[in-house]
Write a protein that binds this DNA or RNA. Structure first.
Lengths: 231, 231
DNA sequence: ATAAATTATTGGTCTTGCCAGTTTTGGGGT
DNA sequence: ACCCCAAAACTGGCAAGACCAATAATTTAT
C-alpha cells in the first residue's frame, strides 16, 4: 500500500464540503445562524473538534462567520459585496459617524486625483438620482454609486472597500426598519442637494470644502434618521 | 494551568502567526520536517487541538503540507506572495493610510470620553509592551490592545470593529510576511515611544494633539514598513 | 414598563485516550 | 557481514468529556 488515500481525504475537508453542500442546497438562509457546533457535529456524525476544524476552513475562505458566544452565521452574499455583516450593538448613529470619519478622509484623497471623466460619471449619477426622485422612487443604488465612485477615485483600495461595506451595512435589520420612516421624497431631495454641493466642491478641486460638505451630508443624514424615529 | 485570555484574537490565529514567524526567522529549512504536533504544542504552550487548528489554517494558505503518519513539512515556497499581493490590490501602504484615517477620527472621540480607568489600562499595556521589548520579543498583542482599547473608548462600535479588522488584516495574509521585515527591536522601540506620546496627549485630554500623534505614529509605521522592504 | 440580575446557550480551549498510517529498529536467516 | 522482514516506536487523525468565557434569553426587582 502506498501513501494514497486509504481513508479518503481528511475529515475536516469532507465535513467542510458537506456544509458547503447544505448551504448550496438552500438549507440555510444568508446571514442566518447555523445550528450550534454541538448540534452540527451530532447531525453530521463527527466529533466537535473535527467539526471545528471544518468551520475554520469555512471561516478562512469567507463562507462563514463565527461569533463567540453567539453562533455561526452565513456571510451575506458570496459576491464581493458585504464581507462582514453588522452585528447589533452597532446603532445606525454609530454607523453614520463611522461613515463620516472614513468618507471625509476619502474625499480629500479623491479631490486631489479627480478627473474630468470621473466628474462626468458623477454628473450622470446625480441626474439619474434626480430622475428617480421625480418619479417618486428611492434612488438607493444611485446614492451608493455616488459614494463608491468617489471612494474609488481615492486610489486606495482598502478605503474604497470600507466605504462600500459601511454603506451596505444599512441593510441590517434595524437600519432597514428605521429607513422606512425617513425615506420620503422630501428627505431624498435634501440628500440630492447635499450631493450636488459635494459635486460642486469636487468640480472646483476644493478638497477642504468637499470634506466639509461630505461631513455635513452624513451628519444631516444621521439627523434625519434620528428625527424620524418615533420613540 | 491556563485559564485567562480575554479580548484577544482566536488562539489558532495567534499560533499560526507565531509559526509563520518561526518559519520566516529561518528556524526551519524549506521542505524540511517541523517538530511533531505534540512537541510543537508543548513548545508553543497550547493544546494539541488548538495547534491542529493553526496547522489547518497554514495548510489552507499553502504554507505547510501535512502528511499523515509522517510529519509536517514546509512547502516549497517560491514567490507566490507577490501574486497574492497584486491580486488583492490592497497594498500595505493603502492599509496604513486607511488606518490613519480611521484611527485619527477615533482618537478624537476617545479623547473626549477618556476615563482614568481607561488611562490606567493603557498605562499597563504600554508597560507590558516595554517589558516585552526588553526581553527581545515582539509585542504585537500589546500593540493591538493599545489601539483597540482606544477604539473601544470611542464609544462607537462600528469604528472599534473597523480598527480591529484593519489591524488584523485577515484579508491579506501577505502583510504578516512583510511585517517580519520591519519588526525589529529598534523599530518596536520607536513605536513604543510614539505610543507614549499618544498616551500623554490622551492623559492631558488634548484631542487635537492626540490626533496628530496618532496620525504621525501610523505614518511612521508606514515609512518603516516601506524602508525595510528588500525589493 | 424599564432596568438589573440570573440563567441558559454557544463558541473557545484543554485533557485524555485510542486508532491508523509511517518510519525506524532489531533480530533471525543466509 | 549482509539482507529481509516483522515488531516496536514514532507520527498524524479523530473522538469524548469537561471547563471557561462571552453572549443571548429569561426572570426578577424597582
Amino acid at each position: 500500500m502506498n501513501g494514497f488515500r486509504t481513508t479518503e481525504r481528511r475529515l475536516y475537508q469532507q465535513v467542510a464540503d458537506q456544509i458547503r453542500g447544505l448551504i448550496q442546497a438552500g438549507q440555510f438562509r444568508l446571514g442566518q445562524r447555523l445550528p450550534s457546533e454541538r448540534e452540527l457535529a451530532l447531525q453530521l456524525g463527527v466529533s466537535r473538534p473535527s467539526l471545528r476544524e471544518a468551520l475554520i476552513a469555512l471561516e478562512i475562505d469567507g463562507t462563514v462567520e463565527i461569533r463567540m458566544g453567539s453562533g455561526i452565521y452565513l456571510v451575506a452574499n458570496t459576491e464581493r459585496r458585504a464581507a462582514t455583516s453588522a452585528s447589533m450593538g452597532e446603532s445606525p448613529v454609530e454607523l453614520m459617524q463611522a461613515r463620516a470619519a472614513v468618507e471625509s478622509a476619502v474625499i480629500v484623497l479623491a479631490s486631489s486625483r479627480m478627473t474630468t471623466e470621473c466628474l462626468k460619471t458623477l454628473r450622470q449619477i446625480l441626474d439619474g438620482m434626480a430622475a428617480e426622485i421625480a418619479e417618486g422612487r428611492k434612488p438607493v443604488e444611485h446614492d451608493r454609486q455616488f459614494h463608491l465612485t468617489i471612494a474609488s477615485q481615492s486610489g486606495n483600495g482598502v478605503l474604497a472597500r470600507l466605504v462600500g461595506e459601511l454603506f451596505d451595512d444599512r441593510h441590517s435589520p434595524l437600519s432597514t426598519q428605521l429607513r422606512e420612516h425617513f425615506e420620503t421624497p422630501d428627505t431624498w431631495s435634501m440628500a440630492l442637494f447635499e450631493h450636488e454641493q459635494i459635486y460642486t466642491a469636487l468640480e472646483g478641486r476644493d478638497s477642504l470644502l468637499a470634506q466639509a460638505m461630505m461631513h455635513a451630508h452624513l451628519e444631516e443624514s444621521k439627523r434625519r434618521w434620528l428625527d424620524s424615529e418615533p420613540r
